[in-house]
Simulated assay, not measured.
Amino acid sequence: MDSLDRLLAERACERVVIDFVHRLDLGEPASVAELFTEDGSWAWPEGERSVKGRDALRQYFGSRPADRLSRRMMSNVLVTVASPDTATATSYFTTYRVDGHEGGPVPPGSPVQVGSYEDTFRRSPDGGWLLSARVLHLAFAGPTPRPPRP
């Protein structure tokens, strides 16, 4: 790959990383599945759980509680292009989340998750980049607080 092709592949993969959190926090969570290959997987070894396949991913992310308010901060996205059709990435995330949100401001609180993602990407037949695997590692974790009721 020449330098420009490598740079374009890195940027496309970074875009998928950011699009993932925007869809979860600000869009339609079930649409996150469209960022994965048909056989894509999402796993978190600490909980020994995984979801495999676009339909299962759509169902998993679509089952997010309707009253959940969340914001994820992404940083340190490092993409490594291995070939014209494959790449990997590591990124850090911090999740602020409140279940039971009924609107209005939320009292300040600590993040409920701090960790990293290990991603594997494949170029799709149309030339775009998709996640083929995402592994979540929680360096710090905690419960999801509910806002106080008046």
Score class of each variant (00 low, 15 high):
5 D>M: 15
5 D>K: 15
6 R>I: 15
6 R>A: 15
7 L>Q: 08
8 L>A: 13
9 A>K: 02
10 E>T: 05
11 R>C: 11
17 V>A: 06
18 I>H: 05
18 I>P: 09
19 D>S: 11
21 V>P: 00
22 H>F: 12
25 D>K: 02
29 P>H: 07
31 S>I: 06
33 A>V: 00
35 L>D: 03
36 F>A: 01
37 T>M: 09
37 T>G: 11
38 E>W: 06
39 D>M: 08
41 S>I: 05
42 W>C: 00
45 P>F: 04
50 S>I: 00
54 R>K: 09
54 R>S: 09
55 D>F: 07
57 L>V: 00
59 Q>G: 11
60 Y>H: 08
60 Y>R: 05
61 F>R: 11
62 G>C: 07
62 G>T: 02
62 G>R: 05
63 S>F: 05
64 R>A: 13
65 P>E: 06
68 R>S: 14
68 R>H: 13
70 S>E: 09
71 R>M: 13
72 R>I: 02
79 V>H: 04
79 V>W: 01
80 T>E: 07
82 A>P: 08
83 S>K: 12
83 S>V: 06
83 S>Q: 12
84 P>F: 11
84 P>H: 10
85 D>C: 13
87 A>L: 09
89 A>N: 02
89 A>G: 07
90 T>W: 10
90 T>G: 04
91 S>T: 04
91 S>C: 09
93 F>N: 05
93 F>C: 07
98 V>K: 10
99 D>T: 14
100 G>D: 03
101 H>C: 01
102 E>T: 15
102 E>S: 15
